[in-house]
Amino acid sequence: MKRNWEALQQTNEERERIWRKTRSFAGDVWSRFRKKPTAIAGFLIIVLLVLFSVLGPLFTGKSYSEQDLNAANIAPRIKVFETPDGNGWLYITQSMKLLRVSAEGEFGEQLSKLREDSERQMLIFDYEGSELGLYYGKKPYLVVNPDTLVIAKSRRIRNRDYLLGTDSLGRDILTRLMYGSRVSLVVAFVAVIVNLLIGILYGGISGYLGGNVDEFMMRIVDIISTIPLTLYVILIMVLLGSGLGSIIVALGSVYWVGMARVVRGQVLSLKQQEFVLAARTIGSSTSTILFRHLIPNAMGAILVTATMLIPSAIFMEAFLGFLGIGLKPPLASLGTMCNDATENLRSCPYQLFIPAFVIVLIMFAFNFVGDGLRDALDPKLRK
């Protein structure tokens, strides 16, 4: 079949037109950021951690400071013994007490103790009119009938009342983990905001004015940098005392040094550009050039540096809490939880592993986001 092909009419304006969808700078950054799986994973982890720490305590129904010594050191997965009538289960606490446990793993009332049989190393409890024996020798177990020494059947079930177990004072680890994550995130974000304000202002002024002003301001930064960071923060904490405010002041007063150096370097490289010379030519003031031209163009490096400072601040807060100079009891933070867990590390290792895992998770998440922002804000990667 014969077809007649005709050339389309095309003007010179259409030939010169670039057929590409226009995109803003923010849209371009987001487009490159979302192409990195680790950055998206880190961002989702941060969002989930924020929801976990802010909204989580509303659903647990427990307080971070509520103590129940009868439920101390209960693991997330517990070993229970069947009752004589087979209608429930009993749990042996570390203090050699018996607690009722439902088939769903929820704790009930405590059985009353009748007497102690020291010869057979048993504690006798009352269960609905009959006697139960608790052998407290090398490996505790439940004896259904103290006379015949029949051992009750046992199994392991999930702890429904305390999903992540309890600590040495019977406090819910899940609830304390939520509050601890909240404290760590608040400390990190507030410290970074303070660092941004001080670091941007200090580094911007130093880099733009240059000369003797720059030399003097940078020598102050060098003096602060020579002091060991951990020693300086601990000294500030000792002088101001324990508490959330003291931690924020301690971190905010020293973490701005790195930000100031980054901003200074960016300003030094940008202030000789043509747009800065044009702004000077039209009579723009120093503050206008600095805050409307130089700082916005250096925002990429500033955001990446701020993102990298957050995990460092979280780790420092956890380290201070682990040393015992962080928050005052009974307030919870990831560091204080790790400190409390060292007493029962061999018998209850989960009390240390859970908050330590959250610390590692937070640090990896922010590092992944910072790495993704660094690539997304790099103009050399724009195609």
Score class of each variant (00 low, 15 high):
residue 8 L to F: 09
residue 9 Q to R: 13
residue 10 Q to D: 11
residue 11 T to S: 15
residue 12 N to S: 15
residue 24 S to N: 13
residue 24 S to H: 12
residue 25 F to T: 15
residue 32 R to W: 08
residue 34 R to I: 08
residue 34 R to H: 14
residue 40 I to H: 06
residue 40 I to W: 05
residue 40 I to T: 13
residue 43 F to R: 08
residue 51 L to A: 14
residue 51 L to P: 06
residue 59 F to W: 12
residue 60 T to F: 04
residue 61 G to V: 05
residue 74 I to A: 01
residue 93 T to M: 06
residue 96 M to D: 14
residue 98 L to G: 00
residue 99 L to H: 09
residue 99 L to G: 03
residue 102 S to P: 03
residue 115 R to T: 14
residue 121 Q to H: 15
residue 136 Y to M: 12
residue 141 Y to K: 14
residue 150 V to E: 15
residue 155 R to L: 10
residue 157 I to A: 05
residue 162 Y to D: 02
residue 167 D to A: 03
residue 170 G to N: 04
residue 178 M to R: 01
residue 179 Y to S: 03
residue 184 S to H: 03
residue 187 V to L: 07
residue 187 V to T: 06
residue 187 V to I: 12
residue 188 A to I: 05
residue 191 A to H: 02
residue 193 I to L: 13
residue 199 G to T: 01
residue 202 Y to G: 00
residue 216 F to C: 10
residue 217 M to K: 08
residue 221 V to N: 07
residue 222 D to Q: 08
residue 225 S to D: 13
residue 232 Y to W: 13
residue 233 V to H: 01
residue 234 I to N: 04
residue 236 I to A: 06
residue 237 M to A: 08
residue 243 G to Q: 05
residue 248 I to N: 00
residue 249 V to T: 07
residue 250 A to D: 01
residue 254 V to T: 12
residue 260 A to E: 00
residue 264 R to L: 06
residue 266 Q to Y: 06
residue 267 V to P: 00
residue 273 Q to Y: 14
residue 278 A to L: 15
residue 298 A to G: 03
residue 309 L to M: 14
residue 313 A to L: 05
residue 314 I to R: 00
residue 328 K to H: 09
residue 329 P to H: 11
residue 329 P to T: 07
residue 333 S to A: 10
residue 340 D to N: 11
residue 345 L to W: 11
residue 351 Q to W: 02
residue 352 L to C: 08
residue 355 P to H: 05
residue 360 V to T: 14
residue 361 L to I: 08
residue 363 M to V: 13
residue 364 F to I: 14
residue 366 F to A: 04
residue 371 D to S: 08
residue 373 L to P: 00
residue 376 A to I: 03
residue 378 D to W: 04
residue 379 P to V: 08
residue 380 K to T: 10
residue 381 L to A: 12
